[in-house]
C-alpha cells in the first residue's frame, strides 16, 4: 500500500519516491534544480556525524539536506 510520509521517515539504505514539495522560496527552487520533482526516486545513504543533516542519493548525486527541510518533502513508500 502506498503511504505518504516526510523524507525524514526513511532510514539509511531505504528508498522512496517524491510525492510533493511543501518547501517555499529559495529552498523549493533549489530542490527543483537538483531534480527533486514528483516521482523522483530518493535513497537515504547516511547521516552526518552530528546526526543531522542526512545524505540522499538524488539522480546520481549525493545531496545533504537538513531534517527540517526534509519535513517539507513528502514521499511515498510502498
Amino acid at each position: 500500500m502506498r503511504q505518504l510520509n516526510t523524507l525524514n521517515s526513511i532510514k539509511p539504505g531505504e528508498r522512496a519516491v517524491v510525492e510533493s514539495l511543501n518547501s517555499t522560496g529559495t529552498m523549493r527552487r533549489r530542490l527543483l534544480d537538483i531534480g527533486l520533482i514528483k516521482n523522483t526516486e530518493v535513497e537515504c545513504v547516511g547521516r552526518s556525524a552530528g546526526g543531522d543533516p542526512s545524505a540522499y542519493l538524488i539522480r546520481g548525486a549525493v545531496i545533504a539536506i537538513r531534517s527540517e527541510d526534509c519535513n517539507n518533502i513528502i514521499i511515498a513508500t510502498n
Binding site: 518547501s23 529559495t26 529552498m27 533549489r30 530542490l31 537538483i34 543533516p53 545524505a55 548525486a61 549525493v62 545531496i63 545533504a64 539536506i65 537538513r66 527540517e68 527541510d69
Partner: peptide, 10 residues
C-alpha cells in the same frame, strides 16, 4: 538558520 543543501561529491 536558513535552509541548506550541500553536495557530497564522489
Amino acid at each position: 538558520p536558513s535552509s541548506f543543501t550541500l553536495e557530497l561529491p564522489p
